[in-house]
Amino acid sequence: MKIFLVRHGMDEEGYRGGWSQRGLTEQGIIQSGKLGNYLHQHAKEYAIDTILSSDLPRAVQTTREIERKLNIPGSFVKDWREMNNGVLAGMLHEEAEVNYPGVYFNSLEMDSPFPGGESPRNFYNRICTSFEMLCRDIEEQKITSNVLLVTHGGVINILYYLLDKREWSNTSSFHPMDHTSVHTIEKGLEGWRFSSMNVVSHLD
């Protein structure tokens, strides 16, 4: 049983991310199409049966490119969104600096939310709960494995800390994570563990 975590394709710079409704750049679309082609060409190796995705536009656009290549419909789930940064979502950096100076993901206290959003602890708990439910659904065969999950860098980073059994906070270091990179989690004798990280062979 495997879960392939994919970070979405390149999105627009100059704006705050989080729950932004902005989409991919042209380069991001190209990256996503290359990943779809790669997964199609290596279909036996990956043996993907289920596609899940965050429902934010940049993840949806990435997933649509993969759907077309694999001919597998995706399911779009709010639980797999990036951290909710409330009123700052999609805001120009310059505008955010003027209206919310010093308010960044890594400047918040763990229990202090973004204005109109969630706190780092809420975000962590949401992702841990979502992952536990996904693993249980796979193990109970409510969801057919292998699963491809298109999500966000912050989400994947939390899962690295969770499976490594290390404490996470919003000031924790970030694992290498390129756009459309693939990170593989497998179920073994010791439970779910990462078996490959930040694979971008499709972009060569």
Rank of each mutant, 00 (worst) to 15 (best):
C135S: 06
K187E: 13
D79G: 00
P113Y: 08
L159Q: 03
Q27V: 15
N198F: 12
E45F: 06
G9A: 05
L162V: 00
G86V: 14
G102D: 05
H179I: 13
E12V: 08
T180I: 02
L56S: 03
E95N: 03
K187W: 14
I30G: 00
M10C: 07
T129C: 12
S173R: 15
E67A: 13
N125I: 05
V147L: 07
I185M: 11
N71C: 14
H183D: 11
I29M: 09
I158P: 00
E67Y: 10
N170Y: 02
M91R: 04
S172Y: 08
E82K: 02
N85M: 02
P120H: 09
G86W: 06
C128Y: 12
D164N: 01
T144P: 08
L5S: 04
G153A: 06
E82D: 14
W192P: 08
S53N: 12
H152L: 03
E167V: 06
G102W: 01
S130F: 13
N71V: 11
S54K: 01
R81H: 12
L70V: 04
S130P: 15
Y15S: 06
I156A: 10
D111K: 06
I66R: 00
E26L: 09
F174S: 06
V155H: 00
G191H: 13
G117N: 12
V87G: 09
R166Y: 15
S201E: 15
G23M: 05
F105W: 13
V6K: 02
V98N: 12
D178K: 06
H179K: 07
G188D: 06
S196E: 10
G191W: 12
E132G: 09
T50V: 07
S181H: 13
K187H: 08
M110I: 14
K34F: 01
I127F: 01
S32Q: 01
V200Y: 03
N106F: 08
L159C: 11
V200L: 02
L149E: 03
D204Y: 12
M91A: 05
L88G: 03
V103I: 14
G116F: 00
T62W: 00
H93N: 11
A96L: 11
G33P: 02
L134S: 03
G153E: 00
R22C: 03
T62A: 15
E97P: 06
E109T: 15
V155K: 01
G86H: 04
C128F: 15
K142A: 02
V6R: 01
S145R: 03
R126H: 07
F194M: 02
V150S: 05
S32C: 05
Q31L: 01
L39P: 07
F131I: 12
